[in-house]
């Protein structure tokens, strides 16, 4: 399952995009967009997110 963003808790800081090796995340002013085709489910975004707003379910 690709990264899923909880828009309710996301701070839109863009931090996750800076550790995404696949360019699958993009901050567009107030929305964090996930390109599910590009996501490689590495989980970097989930780990780095300061508020735990991203979940990647592996497998």
């Amino acid at each position: 399952m690709p990264a899923k963003v909880n828009e309710n808790t996301c701070m839109h800081c863009g931090g996750c995009t800076s550790v995404c090796p696949a360019q699958a995340l993009e901050l567009q002013e107030t929305v964090l967009v996930v390109d599910t085709d590009k996501c490689i489910e590495c989980g970097n975004c989930q780990k780095v997110c300061p508020v735990g707003a991203i979940k990647v379910v592996k497998g």
């Binding site: 800081c13 931090g15 995009t17 800076s18 550790v19 360019q23 993009e26 901050l27 970097n44 780095v48």
Partner: peptide, 22 residues
């Protein structure tokens, strides 16, 4: 830090997880 422009230009800006602070 989340520079997309650098990435659009093909520069390697993605950061390893252990090299950043949350």
């Amino acid at each position: 830090v989340d520079s997309m422009v650098g990435r659009y230009a093909g520069l390697r800006t993605a950061m390893p997880l252990g090299e950043c602070d949350s």
